[in-house]
Amino acid sequence: MASSLYERMRADLLAGRLLAPGRKLQIEFLSHQYGAGQTPVREALNRLTSDGLVEQRDQRGFAVASVSAADLVEITDTRCWLEEIALRKSMGSGSAQWEEDLVLAYHRLSRTPRWLNQEIREINPEWDRRHRAFHRALIGGCGSRWLIGFCEQLADQLYRYRALSVPKISPDRPIQQEHEALMNAIAAGDPDRAVALLTEHYQQTARIVLEDPEAFSG
């Protein structure tokens, strides 16, 4: 029960569906919301605190983790630094399995529409899943489960920030072309260009959120 509840709450926190950042998480409210007892709710909240998605406040219970522009910049920069290492190691590994997995992930992503409804900025959840899988595949050949794990944790945090600004995301951003250019650099065996393109890809997303005046209003 606690594990299933944890996954449901985690998905809702990442997508911004539960409560706004900084808002208090009432145990009774969550028990009612998820149809679960208070003990599994507390267990799930403790795990989510370890993930950095929930804050435990002394004598005041739990709250949705707060957000800030400075935090977004720090998380984005750190992800860029770590994924540079992971991507360079993946490209240098010469693994045919990594290349096959990456091409498959890219192919699946490129065939999936990004929007369910472009006019109201409703992102296709299947595109979201395949986009995440593509970025996971990019670094999947680095040979370090620890490095991949750290990158995944940062990706979770940035997904949460991105969800704050989904209504402001421009449908005209050539994100497919960004992915294609990255794949071309990898196919050409050019790690410097691949890293530069991946870094700009992440920094562009951060700039979109930073330029949204409502993203940090809570």
Rank of each mutant, 00 (worst) to 15 (best):
S3P: 04
Y6K: 00
M9G: 02
R10M: 07
R10V: 02
L13Y: 01
L13A: 02
L13R: 01
L14M: 10
L18P: 00
L19G: 01
L19A: 10
R23C: 13
I27R: 08
I27S: 13
Y34I: 05
A36W: 05
V41Y: 02
R42I: 12
E43S: 05
A44C: 11
R47K: 12
D51C: 05
D51I: 02
L53D: 00
E55H: 07
Q56S: 09
Q56R: 13
R57I: 14
R57H: 12
D58L: 15
Q59D: 12
Q59F: 15
Q59A: 11
A65E: 08
A65Q: 08
V67C: 05
A69R: 11
A70M: 11
E74I: 09
I75Q: 02
I75N: 01
T76L: 07
T78V: 12
C80F: 05
W81P: 01
R88A: 10
R88F: 10
R88L: 07
M91W: 03
G92K: 06
G94V: 03
S95P: 10
S95D: 14
Q97D: 15
L102C: 03
H107W: 10
H107T: 13
R108T: 10
P113W: 09
W115L: 06
W115G: 03
N117L: 13
N117H: 14
E119L: 11
E119Q: 09
I120S: 10
R121T: 07
E122D: 15
E122A: 14
P125A: 10
P125C: 08
E126N: 04
R129L: 09
H131Y: 09
R132Q: 04
F134K: 00
F134G: 00
L138I: 12
G140L: 05
C142H: 00
W146A: 11
L147S: 09
I148A: 13
G149S: 12
C151T: 07
E152L: 13
L154V: 04
D156T: 04
Q157P: 07
R160Q: 07
R162I: 12
P167A: 14
I169D: 05
R173H: 14
I175H: 04
E180P: 03
E180G: 07
A181Y: 05
A181W: 02
M183H: 12
N184R: 15
A185E: 03
A185T: 06
A185Y: 01
I186L: 14
A187N: 11
P191S: 06
R193N: 14
V195K: 02
V195G: 01
A196T: 06
L197T: 01
E200C: 04
Y202C: 12
Q204T: 15
Q204P: 06
A206M: 13
A206P: 03
I208V: 15
I208D: 11
I208C: 09
D212R: 04
D212F: 05
A215I: 04
S217C: 10
